[in-house]
Amino acid sequence: MTAALALGDDALVLSHRLGEWAGHAPVLEEEVALANIALDLLGQARVLLSLAGDEDELAYLREERAFRNVQLVEQPGGDFAHTIARQLYFSTYQELLYERLARGTGPFAPLAAKAVKEVAYHRDHAEHWTLRLGDGTDESHERMRRGLDALWRFTGELFEPVEGCEVEWPTLHDAWLTRITSVLERATLALPEGPRRGGWAAGAGRQGIHTEPFGRMLAEMQHLHRSHPGATW
């Protein structure tokens, strides 16, 4: 089940990255918001990975090269604007993808139909913050711009067809670009320029090629389970 791994790993890895904000978010409300989004994604990951095998084994015992998530979700959180840029790119993509999967008859339709309603709130949250930061102070505008620019090269991979997902990828891409362009315009930000993928690094997460920070993230995520196999609360 390549597709279940791809979608499940996206949700699992981003969930872990968002969880890293616990105790560090700029305000309490945002700490709660990011943790809530992480929880929704973890729920999706559990359903998706269970379609592919044993959820715990898949999450905690696979090596880096066996993960099929896009490289965008494994990128470190950076500052708050950087995290919002990652959320904007990813949640916009995920909502459009789940909308399409929900309309289909494939194995992901029930999960997609349920989760798309949750993801709508994630996307809405990211858009609101993009507007506030982009159309805010010089400092917040600059930080939002930096986050969007830095992650731009990881957005091309989102639209690589995933085997087992009956989705028209080119139209999904066009819808994504239209939506992002409109949000950035309203936020007084420019659409980043430059390549959407890099020859050496970006664009290969679906094939198991990951960026350097991912190994460190996995070490932290998996260490408890590996050190104490079968541990329960």
């Binding site: 409300e29 945002e30 709660v32 918001a33 989004i37 929880l39 949750e118 709130y121 949250h125």
Partner: peptide
């Protein structure tokens, strides 16, 4: 105040 609150299903 926030679209996310004390549980997944609530806003503040």
């Amino acid at each position: 105040l926030s679209r996310f609150s004390s549980t997944a299903c609530k806003a503040l």
